[in-house]
């Protein structure tokens, strides 16, 4: 079983040598698989990047236990993504016992409306998105957020989190009102 020291690296994990090395180790088996399934280089790259993103997400969950090598796990995720993305019959893809139990997020590919909403927020509320992202996903401390975003006090940074939630909520509510069927 491979041990990964992710704890202290979590905040900047993608930038670590670990993920660069994993990229070089895991891309060849995924490319082999996609090539065997008659996919293109672009398909292989897309599926592989998505598999790496899902792997990153899984490692952010403290209860996640990696019971095989990271590259084998990423390849397993890629196979599931191939089935999901191209609506392939599971029986056409051979999954070993480890791969068969991998679960990928149901909502990994956003709906069109979610993508549109995110695009809107990236234009109209980027700073708030970044601030909330720092809190919830990068898991920065209030002190780090205060410094990164230039607030005078930690209290201001904490309050800003709630102000940003309020601002984003208003923006997406407004979008829902003007586009009645937005969240169907």
């Amino acid at each position: 079983m491979e041990t990964i020291e992710l704890g202290m690296e979590r905040k900047t994990f993608v930038a670590t040598a670990f993920f660069s090395e994993l990229y070089e180790k895991a891309f060849p088996p995924v490319a082999h698989f996609v090539s065997k399934m008659n996919g293109s280089f672009q398909d292989a790259k897309d599926i592989f990047h998505d598999a790496m993103v899902i792997f990153c997400e899984k490692t952010e969950d403290e209860s996640f236990i990696l019971s095989t090598s990271a590259e084998a796990y990423v390849t397993g995720i890629a196979k599931h993504l191939w089935i999901k993305r191209f609506n392939r019959d599971k029986r056409t893809v051979s999954l070993d016992a480890m791969e068969a139990v991998i679960v990928i997020p149901e909502d990994y590919y956003p709906t069109i409306n979610t993508s549109r909403l995110l695009q809107l927020l990236e234009v109209a509320g980027r700073r708030c998105l970044d601030l909330l992202h720092s809190f919830y996903h990068e898991k920065l401390s209030v002190a780090e957020i205060k410094n990164r975003f230039g607030y005078k006090t930690e209290h201001s940074a904490s309050v800003q989190k709630y102000k940003c939630i309020e601002k984003i909520r208003e923006t997406i509510q407004q979008k829902a009102i003007t586009h009645e069927n937005f969240f169907e």
Binding site: V53, L121, E122, H137
Partner: peptide, 12 residues
């Protein structure tokens, strides 16, 4: 949910 997708975009 939107932040989750934003996070994925950043990772990608």
């Amino acid at each position: 949910e939107l932040l989750r997708h934003y996070h994925r975009r950043k990772l990608r």
